[in-house]
Design a protein around this nucleic acid. Sequence first.
DNA 1: GCGGATCAC
DNA 2: TATGGTGATCCGC
Length: 626
Amino acid sequence: MSPAPATDKDPETETEHDTLKYSLLGPSLTKSGQDNVDQQKVSEIIYNASKGSKFFNNEENRDKNLTAKIEKILAKKKELEKLDLAHDIRKADDCIAELELSRDLSQSVVHIDCDAFYAACEELDRPELKEVPFSVGKGVLTTCNYHARKFGCRSGMAGFVAKKLCPQLIQVPLNFEKYTAKAQEVREIIVDYDPRFESASIDEAYLNITEYCSMNDISPEDAVQQLRREVHEKTKITISAGIAANAKLAKICSNQNKPNGQFRLANDRNVIMAFMRDLPTRKVNGIGRVFERELDAIGVKTCGDIYTYRQYISKLFGEKAFTFLMQCYLGLGRTKVQPAEEYERKSVGTESTFGDMSGHIELRDKLRQTAEELEKDMLRTQFKGRTLCLKVKLHTYEVFTRQVIPPKAIYLADDLYKFSVPMLTRLEQEFPGMKLRLMGLRCTNLVSMKKPDTMAFFGFKKRPGTDLDSSDIPDDEQLKRKADVLDKDGQWEAIPAELLFEDAERQEREEEFEELETLSQLEEVDKRRHHGKEVVPNPRKQDSPVEEWWDCPICLRPQVASEKEFNEHIDLCLSRQTIRNAVQETSGAGRPPRESTPSNKKSKTSEKSKDKTVLGDPKQRRLFFG
DNA sequence: GCGGATCAC
DNA sequence: TATGGTGATCCGC
């Protein structure tokens, strides 16, 4: 990046710095407790504290890209302005009319939000903290109390930046068990108001109190007043609440009178429309810093402005965004509230940040470690993944991801590692000598291997004589054994419902298809790797201890690799072999199977812990309310 | 379907 | 000295 010689007179540079400074203020700008803060001064301090760092440079880069993207949007809008958009206006109006038909004003939805939750929990144990500015979380603030917010401190802010804003800031370490236990107390109270309440996070929940209000002949305001009083009396936690016709509005309303307040928006179309008309777009859940800027650029500052520019929106931002924004303009949202467990999980993943790291061996050790972390999570959640995704963040803060579809759904560390190594290798080829600050693995396209009662809940029954529970085996080991047995198939019998059978059939077909896909993908990688020249060895890092040529007995290609890498290559080659055989079996075509070669077991690597874990384990959040 | 990007908490 | 982890979704290609 070229540091532009910035003269104060260059308006473009000034604008860029303004947008960058705004971006550096962080995503939680709209949070409460910032009303009387001199944002100009705060942003100046943050800017100066960050200037010159790699983080800053990356932010600057992102800001420039966004500015360029916005210029494109504006150019496109200018083109559109030359055209006759009567058709687009009519289309938008038709859509608005149709959405209007879905308006439901019969429900009372509540969003509750515990005020500075972690900080409040800490204050209960250490009352002296109430009087001083303090934050929870050290490297990065997860939250802070209202004293600290007066200085401009916010969640997501780097600890050292917060210290610049507020030198007397006290930083308290996270204690997740404490927050989980406290949240459970809150849960036990709100369940009386809606047994099917939906927890949105550890400190937030949606309730539908329509029935509660009619059963108890009480107004929504009074019911929520009572709920908040009860929560405060029994848990000493203050909460803020929003009451409205749907979840989207309730969420906005809970921010209205924070902290320790509530706000009701009447279930009245005119009232709702008037409320949305003046509401800044950023207040809506789903509109963040980027979309806010993009909308602002075309003239949309409030949800009311959306209507004015309705003829441009779908062409500039896409159909999904169009529908979403029209719903914002109209103040529409879902009225359905349901327990979080009833939502289907889409992925399981883990990632961690560490001091800059490079070198083949180190990176593979870290990958191995990451794979083992993910195995734990897969066992905990009882899923296997059909797709595996590797994520890295370079020392420059640039993020890249690569994914593969293994020949079968996987969850064991050995498999996770085996199938992610080629992705790492590929990245190393793309970015020679890359230095990483983060590595992560994630499984998607999940396949459940859930325990009996859960399966029963979803319409499966257990086959007789397959009870896997034995109380004298540790939990972890039990989960693994269950997974192993389930691996062999035939554990679960679908209740004879045609739909389920159809589903299973489709799944089998998909499995076959995915195996073929994987095969062609792997071969594609091969072609790329050996494209043109004959096996060009990677430029080796100086810190790699072994440098030798080996011939792979399976693919017969020469490999430059340490013994460890060579073993990895053999593992991969073997897995390809397995796929080929499987494809041959099903298709009846292809070459005869080769002889298989036993592969050496990878030696376990002892790991020096370079990790600088600054936050607690957010995975534990998922244990709450479920 | 893949990879980049945004968003929430 | 120095800026998080988990999960979801959307878009362009």
